[in-house]
Amino acid sequence: MRAHRLTFAALVVAAGLSLTACQNDDDAAGATDPSSASSASAASSSGGGSGSGGTDQDSGKGSDGKGTAAPADSGSGSGSGDSGATPKCTTDGLKITAQDGFIEGDPEGSVVVGLTNGSGADCVISGFAGVDLKTNAGTISATRKGEPGDPYTLRNGKEIDFYVSYPLNESGGSGVRITGLVVTPPNETKSVTLDWPGNSSLPASDGSGPQVLVGPIGSAGQGG
């Protein structure tokens, strides 16, 4: 009976030593092999790198660090911001005429200048035309009066007008004789010289009297 008890006790001790050895082996493996922890850390770091690329995109930058905002003229398809817009009216595309617009009783003389689009396509016009009166005493440049309207699309074959006003010569003298009207369309440098359709002279002046004035495009007539 004593022998059996000793054998059982020996078995219990052996089993305990075996379990302790297994546990110590597992602990040692965890202490000497940090691959599992470092792998998790590396995975987290990799995720952060991908996120930083997203941050570049959110801030308007691409992979090269430069802005990726579309240029203002990207809709044109050719790099020119106005390639798809209606072109401006040019001197060569306009037929320019002038007629007397004076109405009896008015304190000033008036000439209506008409601009007819003969270019074959619609064009845009706005602002003031340049107006000069050629006289026997030299050139007199008209002074702008009024506020220009918004840019106006002048359809092919249609006309738009503006006025030129000038002081009447009521002095009884010969005054300053007008020999021609020079018109330069807005934003153009090429001029057209027309016959002057109004009164033949201006009152002689030292510059302190009434001026020759020009109204903005569309200031006379209805246009079209």
Rank of each mutant, 00 (worst) to 15 (best):
T68I: 14
M1S: 14
L19R: 05
A9F: 13
K88V: 12
T179W: 04
S39H: 11
T189H: 09
C89L: 07
S119Y: 11
G209E: 12
S141G: 05
D33Q: 02
G149M: 08
D56Q: 12
G75L: 05
A204T: 08
G120H: 10
Y163A: 05
F102S: 11
G218K: 05
A204W: 07
A204S: 13
A137W: 14
G62Y: 04
G75N: 05
K66R: 04
L202E: 03
C89M: 04
N169Y: 01
D150P: 01
G30Y: 12
E108M: 15
Y163S: 03
I178L: 07
P197V: 02
S201F: 02
A137C: 03
D206V: 03
Y163L: 01
G157H: 07
T97H: 03
V131L: 04
S200G: 11
S126G: 06
R5Y: 05
S45W: 11
N117A: 04
V164R: 03
P210Y: 13
G81T: 00
K88E: 09
T139K: 14
S191R: 01
F128K: 00
T55W: 09
G105A: 02
A72D: 04
Y166N: 01
P210L: 14
Q23D: 05
L202W: 05
P148L: 13
G67N: 07
G180T: 06
P203Y: 07
G67S: 15
S110M: 12
A28H: 13
A3I: 07
I96P: 00
V183N: 00
S205R: 11
K66Q: 11
G218E: 07
G180Q: 05
A40I: 14
N169V: 01
Q222D: 15
G149W: 06
V183R: 00
D195F: 10
S191E: 00
V176I: 15
G172C: 04
G146M: 06
K134S: 15
A204V: 09
S50I: 12
G81V: 01
P148N: 10
T32N: 07
T86S: 08
G207R: 08
S201K: 04
K158N: 11
D195M: 10
G47S: 15
K95N: 15
A31W: 13
G173M: 06
G101R: 02
P216E: 05
S63W: 08
A121E: 14
F162V: 00
T91Q: 09
G172F: 03
G209H: 10
S205W: 12
S141A: 15
G16L: 15
F102L: 08
T90W: 06
S63D: 10
G65R: 01
N136Q: 05
V13M: 10
G224Q: 15
G54N: 11
A204M: 08
V13F: 14
A72P: 00
A3C: 06
G120P: 09
G62D: 15
G30K: 10
G180S: 06
D33I: 02
G120W: 13
A129P: 02
I96S: 03
S141H: 10
A10W: 04
D25P: 00
E170F: 00
T139I: 15
D206R: 06
L115V: 02
C89R: 07
S50W: 11
G105E: 02
T32W: 12
G180M: 06
D27N: 05
A69L: 09
P210T: 13
A10K: 06
S208Q: 09
H4I: 09
T32Q: 10
S36M: 13
S46Y: 12
P151I: 00
L19Q: 13
P107T: 08
D106Y: 13
